[in-house]
Simulated assay, not measured.
Amino acid sequence: MKQEFNADYWQNRYHLGQTGWDVGAITPPLREYFDQMPNIGQRILVPGCGNAYEAEYLYRKGFVHTYVADVAEAPLQRFSERVPDFPKDQLLLQNFFQLDSKFDLIVEQTFFCAIDPSLRPNYARKCAELLTTGGKLVGLLFDTTFEQAGPPFGGSSEEYRTYFEPYFKFLHFETAYNSIPPRQGRELFMELRKLGS
């Protein structure tokens, strides 16, 4: 029987502490990208946010229109306890594919690798749908395969391009130079702009 990666599945993973993807902090590629972003007024979404270190970093830098979404309640509760002044209405206990707001930036950090690979074309389309004119999708993708059954699920840059090319212009899509040591040479940094923008 096929495993369903639903809210109960992820809630259980957090409850059992099975969060090997979680490095306990924002990773250098995203931190460096955020440090050079000028527009603190933009609306930002971190989907499948987990413990949301990226959202915490952005919020502390003045990006107050940052939203986090996850299907599991546990990481949202932990995030709310860690960042008590973060607006509660920007904590979205929702399935990414059912969101209907508009954002200027979507931040990808270990969500794409967590969803069933059959949903990857839908993910690319949904990101484009949620982005405003000129909006960007920025983040990291695993450029490797994993020995154990996922999630996380791996893949290659060639595969990923097929999902994003119908909807995005590729500004950056290359091996991250500043990954944490365990992921060195195994991560792609992407900065994609919605087509028609």
Rank of each mutant, 00 (worst) to 15 (best):
P38Y: 09
K194M: 06
I115C: 04
Q42F: 14
G150A: 00
A149D: 02
I180V: 12
A55W: 11
A72Q: 06
F86A: 07
A25L: 01
V138N: 02
R183C: 11
L45Y: 05
R161A: 13
W10E: 01
G155F: 08
F79R: 02
F96N: 00
S157V: 14
Y14W: 14
Q148V: 08
A149L: 03
Q3D: 11
G150I: 06
T144K: 14
Y167Q: 11
L76K: 05
D22T: 10
M37S: 07
P152A: 10
V68R: 01
Y160N: 14
T132W: 04
A176D: 06
Y14Q: 11
M190K: 05
G24M: 04
Y123V: 03
E147G: 08
T133H: 09
L91H: 08
D143N: 14
R43S: 14
F86G: 09
E158V: 15
Y177P: 14
E187I: 00
G196S: 06
A52L: 14
H15Q: 11
F5P: 06
L30I: 05
E158Q: 12
E191G: 10
Y177V: 15
F164W: 01
K126A: 10
Y9D: 01
S156Q: 04
E73H: 13
P151S: 08
S80N: 02
H172M: 13
L131M: 09
I40G: 04
L16R: 15
L76G: 05
Y177H: 14
P38V: 09
Q184T: 09
T19M: 03
D143T: 00
R78I: 07
Y57I: 08
S118C: 13
